[in-house]
Design a protein around this nucleic acid. Structure first.
Length: 226
DNA sequence: GCGACAG
DNA sequence: ATCTTGTCGC
């Protein structure tokens, strides 16, 4: 696909892709889940991207794919996918064992045009995805209770677009939404299932640690099985 | 026009 | 996202 777009063209593409979003329930059991994230240095257009696949029950790593690439699009709120997906998709294609669900660092349909990075990736890959973000982007919600597991709905234009989830007692919540091919309720269940004592759910947390090791030269780019 | 705005 | 050590609090 063509990633050489202007911001205006990217917005137009999002409006077209919006019609193809599918948030019907993901069928079948979930045995493997993956986390995707990117990292980079300030004042440098090198991007370090990676995806790590974990066992859904134990959260132990199964395999990974990392790549060192070049940024081709600036960071613009609402257009994050155009900056991150080209590199992440290359890592995805090289990944030996695909997961049932892919969790991405960022939002899914919790987005002004319903096209967060997790939704966009799901649409171009056909992969079931959810978005797990560390900050608010759009919509309104009530502050969830202080205990792990409490959550509240995020509403935008009268539409429910995701949840604010307390993934651990007494810490800042995380923002969860379906990306593609996963239902609203499933996105919440999955995010909570993957929250194992720390604020950030394991898939994106491990992906974050991995791409930072890649950026610091502590691991090599490429594929690996554990 | 003003404010908000993932990573 | 990244720049960065110690420190306060559960």
């Amino acid at each position: 696909m063509n990633w050489n777009l202007t911001p205006a063209e990217a917005i137009q593409l999002q409006k077209e892709l919006k019609e193809k979003i599918d948030i019907r329930p993901f069928p079948g059991p979930i045995q493997k889940i993956a986390g995707a994230d990117i990292s980079y240095n300030k004042n440098d257009d090198t991007i370090y991207a990676g995806i790590i696949v974990l066992d859904y029950e134990t959260m132990e790593p199964i395999c990974r794919s990392t790549i060192i690439d070049k940024m081709r699009f600036p960071y613009i709120p609402g257009l994050l996918s155009f900056r991150e997906i080209p590199s992440l998709y290359a890592a995805w294609e090289a990944l030996e064992e695909k997961p049932d669900i892919l969790a991405m660092d960022g939002h899914g349909i919790n987005h002004f045009r319903r096209l967060g990075v997790a939704t966009h990736f799901g649409l171009i890959s056909g992969q079931a995805c959810i978005g797990i973000a560390k900050n608010h982007l759009t919509g309104t919600y009530e502050e969830p209770g202080p205990k792990r597991g409490s959550f509240s709905n995020i509403i935008d234009q009268g539409e429910k677009i995701g949840y604010v989830l307390r993934s651990r007692d007494q810490v800042k919540p995380v923002w969860v939404s379906p990306g593609h091919r996963v239902s609203m309720e499933q996105s919440l269940e999955i995010a909570l299932h993957c929250s194992r004592g720390l604020r950030i759910p394991e898939p994106t947390r491990q992906a974050h640690l991995m791409v930072n090791e890649l950026r610091r030269g502590e691991i090599e780019a490429g594929v690996k099985s554990f």
